[in-house]
Amino acid sequence: MDVFMKGLSKAKEGVVAAAEKTKQGVAEAAGKTKEGVLYVGSKTKEGVVHGVATVAEKTKEQVTNVGGAVVTGVTAVAQKTVEGAGSIAAATGFVKKDQLGKNEEGAPQEGILEDMPVDPDNEAYEMPSEEGYQDYEPEA
């Protein structure tokens, strides 16, 4: 019985440690998101679009440190934060509304985080759909 109880105690310690790591990862992701939003706020009209992409990228980098179902929630929060940063930029006159959601080359930025393969159960990952990809044929 002692062996059984000791095993359960060790398992509990492992769960607590994993929860603490997840909590730490979420806190880091939130900190990076805040950094990115402050970065966007300090940019001029020309830099705002690039700044919004930076927020998304920093958040995406930190999301990889967070495991399990938390990833889905962090990704949703990050996307809403990026959308909010863009709205703030438009409201303050840093950028025109028609410039939001495009990178410096004018290509749409939507789907940055949505296409990231995420499995809350950590069982399997699927690649994003290939609808947006084109076949590449090298020139002879």
Rank of each mutant, 00 (worst) to 15 (best):
D2I: 01
V63R: 01
D115W: 04
E114C: 12
T33G: 04
V16N: 07
E123I: 13
A27V: 06
V16C: 05
D119C: 10
G101N: 02
K60P: 01
F94I: 02
Q99M: 08
T33W: 08
L113D: 11
V55C: 09
T75P: 01
E35V: 05
D121H: 14
P128Q: 05
K34Y: 09
E57F: 09
V55L: 10
E20Q: 05
N103D: 11
I112F: 11
G73M: 13
T59I: 02
D135K: 12
V70H: 00
A89I: 08
F4S: 00
K60T: 06
A29I: 14
K12F: 04
E131Q: 14
E123N: 07
A140T: 13
V95G: 13
Q79F: 08
G68W: 14
K32W: 13
N65S: 09
P117Q: 11
Q134P: 15
V16W: 14
V37F: 07
V77W: 14
Y39F: 13
A91K: 06
T59L: 06
K97H: 05
Y136N: 01
E28M: 09
E13A: 15
Q99H: 12
M1W: 00
A30N: 01
Q79D: 03
V48E: 00
V40W: 02
K23I: 03
Y39N: 05
Y136S: 06
V48P: 00
V49Y: 09
A29D: 00
V26R: 00
H50M: 12
Q99A: 11
P120M: 10
K43G: 01
A91V: 05
G31F: 09
M5Y: 03
E137M: 06
A56G: 09
D121N: 08
N103L: 11
E61C: 09
T72Q: 08
Y39H: 04
E123V: 08
T64S: 15
T59D: 00
Q79T: 11
A91G: 10
G106A: 07
E105D: 13
G25C: 12
E126M: 05
V3M: 07
G86T: 10
A91R: 11
D121G: 15
E104A: 13
V71I: 14
A69T: 00
A27L: 12
K21A: 06
K10N: 13
K34F: 08
V55N: 00
I112V: 11
D98A: 05
A90V: 05
V95I: 10
V95D: 03
